[in-house]
Structure formats: structure tokens, C-alpha cells
Amino acid sequence: STRTMSSPEKEFITKFVALASVQASGVSADAKVPQQNVTNLGVALPPLRYRYDHRRAKKNATDS
């Protein structure tokens, strides 16, 4: 559900977004480094604690 909420976090977000969004013109929202220039993939993300069952995924895709 969406409604107007207020909390210390919401206040922080409102102020932060106001400040950051005026400075975000340095890099546009649809910017992307061309893949030919990608030379570092960052750090490997840790594995998730949850198992992925591809057979279940296939079944869900067929059912939906």
C-alpha cells in the first residue's frame, strides 16, 4: 500500500535526495561504460543462503 509516511528515515531520505539529485548530473542515469572499456568486475558477491531449484522454476514458468 502507498501512503504518506513520516519517520526519521523518511526525513533523511527526503533531505538526502534533495541534496544528491541536484549533484547527480555528473553521470547521467542512463550512462554505462562501454563493455569494451570494462576492465574490472568489482568484488565477487557472497553466495546466497537459499538454494535455487531450477526444476521448480521451470514448473512455475509452465504453470503461470
Partner: peptide, 18 residues
Amino acid sequence: RAECEKVIKNGFEMWYFK
């Protein structure tokens, strides 16, 4: 159906989740 609200400012949009 999480409680959320859209925050829009200077072209930036996000969802605030309670």
C-alpha cells in the same frame, strides 16, 4: 503489498519502504 511511498525529486525517483 509492502508499505511504500514514491519519492520524486529533480528527475530522480525511488520507493521509500517503511
